[in-house]
Write a protein that binds this DNA or RNA. Sequence first.
DNA 1: ATTAGAGTCGAACGAACGTTCGGTAAGCTC
DNA 2: GAGCTTACCGAACGTTCGTTCGACTCTAAT
Lengths: 229, 229
Amino acid sequence: MPIPPAETRTAASAPAARGRQATAEPESRYDRQLARVLEHAAKIFCDKGYEGASMRDLSRACGMSLAGLYHYFESKEELLYRIQKHAFETIIENAKARLASVSDPEERVRVFIENHLEYFLANKEAMKVLTHEDETLKNGRGAEIRAIKREYYRICFDLLEDLKRKQGLQFPVRLAVLSLFGMVNWIYTWHNPRVDADAGALGNEMSEIFLHGLVQNENGRKKVSKSKP
Amino acid sequence: MPIPPAETRTAASAPAARGRQATAEPESRYDRQLARVLEHAAKIFCDKGYEGASMRDLSRACGMSLAGLYHYFESKEELLYRIQKHAFETIIENAKARLASVSDPEERVRVFIENHLEYFLANKEAMKVLTHEDETLKNGRGAEIRAIKREYYRICFDLLEDLKRKQGLQFPVRLAVLSLFGMVNWIYTWHNPRVDADAGALGNEMSEIFLHGLVQNENGRKKVSKSKP
DNA sequence: ATTAGAGTCGAACGAACGTTCGGTAAGCTC
DNA sequence: GAGCTTACCGAACGTTCGTTCGACTCTAAT
């Protein structure tokens, strides 16, 4: 949930997180405010889209003046960049950590899917911004985000290729990866926490569809005995 | 590809398509120009997003003055509405027509998927606008588009429920529908006509993944004999 | 008590936005 | 060829946009 403390300071030169004794406190006032701003920005970009959202909307949401906001970043574009970068880096980090302890190829795919859904649903706003505004950033920042995205794609690709090789399967890996991303990313258009299951259950069900399909004859796992022949 | 002739005139009161003899010519000058405008609008909304696209962009693309454009519609919002409505109605119409002659439940799902992909790839720009700007329209027009969307969803839902019942399967239908839409709609983010297969081939491959999954053991259709045990 | 700078603000900048207005030139009907 | 309509345009309307500027307050170190 928390959008991150500053890491790198790109606006005016400013203090690193220094508490009262320079060591104890992890979050300076600046860091806390910046995190607040990023969180509200994610919410607003999510609701109205990057282009449709105005800095005045953000100012209102943060309870801070328009000019005051610019103490924490240098442009609207940087806000989008920060939100996207943090979301992507975190989901990749989480995926790597979870995959490290799983070796069965099929199970690894399941873990990847569940990790994706879990982070997605826990950070719905940032992830919608990541997904929806995927071509918005241009030039340097856009290239950086696209590189991170490619890394994430690659992780999934390798997972599926490994599965294919070890189990001697036959399917187009690129298309499988992109179909999987479609399935899991599309969730931002429909998921309603009051109606739909949580990440764990959805992950299992989606994994089942993706790995074994709707129709699983000859195997019995999906087929159910019917009273009428 | 062609965005449609006028159907209903919503701007200033204006002539219906009347040829020189009121019967022979199907396309008046007005209809042709309107179609041109809608086509360019779809392209621009697709490239820069609805909010990011300006009427001046459209004016430039059409080679027509800003004021002149408004002869053909009453607002930017109406443009989006027209594009979305036409795309949705056509894809539904096509789906119904194709499904009418197919009775096998599994084959019907395949036909639905292939129809979707075929229209999607043949009308990439309008379909990206439909997919990407899906929450943009508000009030009356938004409600109307959402109703059409619900109808399309319903067709797919019924298809899958029929498959489930007739084959005695067990899967969550709502999730299956939404996963399928995710798979097929996501295509606008990645499809490259110079790299990727055409709608027919992609439809087959996606249908295979969706219906039978990546891993299809015990059945041999997917498993391939390996030299090493 | 003085100073430095972090944090914040009101007010404004120029640019861009969607839309409208008054007008004109061409085409059609009588 | 008068009269009406369609198709289009230049210029501008009022608004909103992202961003900046100079000044103020508060805190904390000198």
